Computed example of a mutant assay.
Amino acid sequence: MYISISPQKTGAAFSKSAGDFVSYLEKENAGKSLLKKEYFFNQYEDNIQPYEVIKGIDGNTAKLKNKEPKYYSITMSPSQYELKHIRNNPEKLKAFVRDAMKEYAGSFNREINGKPINVDDIKYYAKIEYERSYKSNDVAIRENKAYSKQIAHLKNELRKVERGEISGNPRKLESEIQKLARDAPYKIRGKVIEPGMKKEGLQSHIHIIVSRKDASNTYSLSPGSKYKASEVEMHGKMVKRGFERDRFFQNSEKAFDKMFQYNRNYVESYAAKKMLSKDPKQYFLGLRNLGFNEKKIAFKMIRQAGLQLPVLNLPTSKVGFAYKQLKRIIETGIKSSSIGY
């Protein structure tokens, strides 16, 4: 499970309304009949129309400054293993989001009217998307780049030859293009993967637009707060503040596992991901100490990210390099959402 939280982009170049983002999330509905369209949902309602989302978010911004984000975007991307486990069932994804948003509310170290924040204090709208396209920062695109560049060059040369602008052997050029296409490391049905191509396999993920203000449009709730859970004295009294991202990410993962009886592998876990960032050596040792079956699955998940593990039996002088390589491999897999978090 990969979860990210991003603030609304602000500044002169960006719209102050949620309209542009909502329109972006409507891209998969283009050309579909009413019965086949995917609609927004929140904690209690389904089939929410785009204009209702825009109205709900844009109308819930009391006393926010122009440079402050009016909403935050949360993206939840289950791995293909997780999606396969729930059979890519959209109703199960919705149920998970509704549970995860309870964890989101509970991760604020705040009170409203003397009570801890709960999901009814949160104003949000969510939508499931089923497709993903390759982007320039994906592993496949980066490692195909040299081949794609050379193929584009040769295709340009071939067109010039066919137009009579330069002399050359069309058959030889076509043969070189085909060889490069065969040698490229990443392909879909024989075609070299390029930016914009749709990814194969289960790609369902959820976009959530959550208002910066609470549901009553009174209190500001920022998951981007620089403060962790703490208390501070303001105007002579102690006030709670902060948002615990670690708690939200970890508890969302636990909610998925409990709801669907999912047996999470070591490399998928939020705890392991955090260890990777803080102590790669310990992460590496944890990976090596897994039982045979779990280790086998873990390595398979890592390799499916498109990279190879470094050799494990290294002289002491090269161990540090191996840790760095492993960290890079896992982080790349995490971001590609082949593994998850």
Rank of each mutant, 00 (worst) to 15 (best):
A146R: 15
S216T: 10
A255M: 11
E143L: 12
Q178W: 00
K179T: 14
L158P: 08
E131A: 15
Y125L: 09
L158D: 10
L221E: 04
G168K: 07
N137M: 05
L154N: 05
S269D: 02
K149L: 11
N144S: 04
A152I: 04
V267P: 10
G168F: 08
S148P: 03
E162V: 03
K254F: 10
K149G: 08
N217V: 06
F260Y: 13
A229L: 10
L180Q: 02
E194R: 15
S148G: 11
Q178Y: 02
Y227K: 14
K135R: 14
R171S: 14
E176I: 11
S148D: 02
Y130I: 08
E253I: 01
I166V: 13
E157A: 13
N156Y: 10
R159P: 03
G164D: 04
G242Q: 03
D257R: 00
E200P: 07
S204P: 08
K160Q: 12
L221P: 04
K240S: 12
S148F: 06
E174I: 09
S230R: 13
G190I: 06
Q250V: 00
F243Q: 02
K135W: 01
R142H: 04
N169M: 06
I177L: 07
N251V: 01
V210A: 10
A126P: 01
V267Y: 11
I209D: 10
Y227N: 13
R245W: 05
K199I: 10
L180G: 07
N137K: 15
N156R: 11
H207V: 10
I151A: 05
I209H: 09
L158W: 09
K127G: 04
I188G: 00
I208S: 00
Y134A: 04
Y186K: 06
M197E: 08
E233I: 03
Y219V: 10
P223E: 01
Y262R: 07
S167R: 14
E233A: 06
N251A: 09
S269C: 09
G224R: 11
Q261W: 08
R163P: 00
H153N: 12
N156M: 06
F248T: 00
N251C: 09
R142W: 06
K258F: 10
K172T: 08
G168E: 05
F248M: 09
V192W: 05
N144C: 07
A126Y: 08
Q150P: 00
V161D: 03
D246W: 06
